[in-house]
Design a protein around this nucleic acid. Structure first.
Lengths: 106, 106
DNA sequence: GTTATAAGTCAAATATAATTAACTTATAGA
DNA sequence: TCTATAAGTTAATTATATTTGACTTATAAC
């Protein structure tokens, strides 16, 4: 999540993809950032992953942009390939939230 | 809107699906079971959730059967409505697994 | 500068997920 | 039993995610 300052040799700022702490609830954008961080940390290109998983590059880009209009199966394939997995959290309250309460997720 | 907990005539839960422990990595089937458990625990019918979220019943059934050929956005809407959310686990290993190594997830 | 590789975008065609409506099956009370 | 609600299925249609291929930026090395 935090984009640490980093410069190339011309002094231009470059986005540093840092692995965010995601032990808690997170947004699709944060998940996307974690995926990109893991992939780049493993020094894999989009095409590397795309070809290994038979997923098209535009779809991979959608996933890494946090677009939730993607097939769950594709997201899971990417996550598994990168060594990421979900665990589940439950508000053990019986409350269901309002439908439009927090649209961070979709 | 009909946000009251659904009961049968005696006010008892309809089915009793038990909420599995999902603090660790889980399969889509386990996630599906957790969703069903949470929904029935909240005494909501498929149609209750379906109508509240504008998701069709067949799609909801797919989700509750662990079919991963569903839109991520739809899964997330359901989870949020039921008070479920993901957290992320990472194999801190740099290993990428074989493409077909474990198809539990998809 | 040039070159090479990666990232990201785009439109058209295809593949497939989602919806609709009707239907069957299952469960639990009266 | 009978009745009512919930669960689950199915086929046809609609909506849309995905793919393909080409293309345009970006970034980093030379």
């Amino acid at each position: 999540m935090s984009n640490l300052a980093k410069t190339n040799r011309t002094g231009k700022a470059v986005k540093a993809t840092v692995m965010p702490n995601l032990s808690e609830r997170f947004t699709p954008t944060q998940l996307a950032e974690a995926i990109t961080a893991k992939r780049t940390g493993m020094k894999l290109s989009l095409v590397d992953v795309s070809e290994a998983l038979s997923i098209s590059k535009p779809t991979l880009v959608k996933i890494e942009k946090g677009d939730t209009n993607v097939k769950l199966a594709n997201l899971l394939k990417v996550m598994e390939y990168l060594g990421l997995s979900f665990s589940l959290l439950s508000d053990d309250s019986t409350s269901k939230e309002e439908t439009g309460a927090s649209d961070d997720w979709y």
